[in-house]
């Protein structure tokens, strides 16, 4: 899933400093699963913002709505009625950064602000802890590395690791960070594929990655 975390509330307060009435929108997709932008987090942020503004003596009115997904036009359409019938100063989105962009595209005349920082594509390690697993390079080759991704999980995205900074299974950048190449070594060893690790992996073609420009996927059979 896409993992995101809420921006510091101080930053959000600055964004809404001049507003008296805003629509705060959540998303029931990835950000609900990673507990950063679902219905519950929308309620908590709305309450915190209201407390802050009451304290300053200038109350802010916040309507809350959590959409099925903010990355699908059909759900973003559901904001039409509330936006049309209320004089909102702005729409705040608690989706990954796709959400606010969809809202801005659909509702051209209203200010849109992101309340989350989209951090990575990853998964949960345990309840309350998430980590990065994929960098969306667009041409998956993890089967060559014991089904572990060196591009997303090696600090230097090495194709021929582990480098000289690998110590005790940890990366030189932090004792908190596993050396993915150490994990690759252990797994290849268990699978009896260590000989594969002896082969030089040549240059990666990055055209399928962000480096090839913004990407698009088309399924002709589904397209209307």
């Amino acid at each position: 899933m896409v993992v995101a975390e809420q921006k510091p509330i101080e930053e959000i307060l600055v964004m809404v400093a001049d507003f008296n009435k805003v629509l705060l929108t959540g998303c029931k997709g990835c950000v609900t699963v990673c507990c950063s932008g679902g219905q519950k987090e929308v309620g908590i942020l709305a309450s915190a913002l209201k407390i802050a503004r009451k304290k300053e003596g200038r109350e802010i009115e916040i309507d809350e709505i959590t959409l099925e997904r903010q990355c699908d036009p059909e759900y973003v359409d559901q904001l039409e009625e509330p936006i049309a019938s209320n004089k909102y100063d702005a729409v705040l989105s608690m989706a990954c950064s796709v959400g606010p962009q969809y809202i801005a595209k659909r509702y051209e005349d209203i200010l849109v602000y992101p309340c989350l920082n989209t951090t990575f594509i990853g998964g949960a390690l345990e309840h309350g802890v998430w980590a990065e697993f994929c960098q969306a390079c667009g041409s998956c080759g993890i089967h060559n590395f014991g089904a572990l991704c060196p591009i997303a999980r090696c600090a230097k995205s090495l194709m021929n690791g582990p480098c000289g900074g690998s110590a005790g299974g940890k990366c030189e950048i932090s004792p908190e960070t596993d050396c993915v190449w150490h994990l690759i070594y252990e797994r290849m060893s268990r699978l009896g594929q260590l000989d594969k690790m002896g082969n030089v992996v040549m240059f990666k073609d990055w055209t399928s990655s962000r480096d090839g420009g913004p990407r698009k996927m088309v399924r002709e059979d589904l397209k209307q």
Partner: peptide, 8 residues
Amino acid sequence: KVLEGIGM
């Protein structure tokens, strides 16, 4: 923490 963030 939330209260601290909003200066309370």
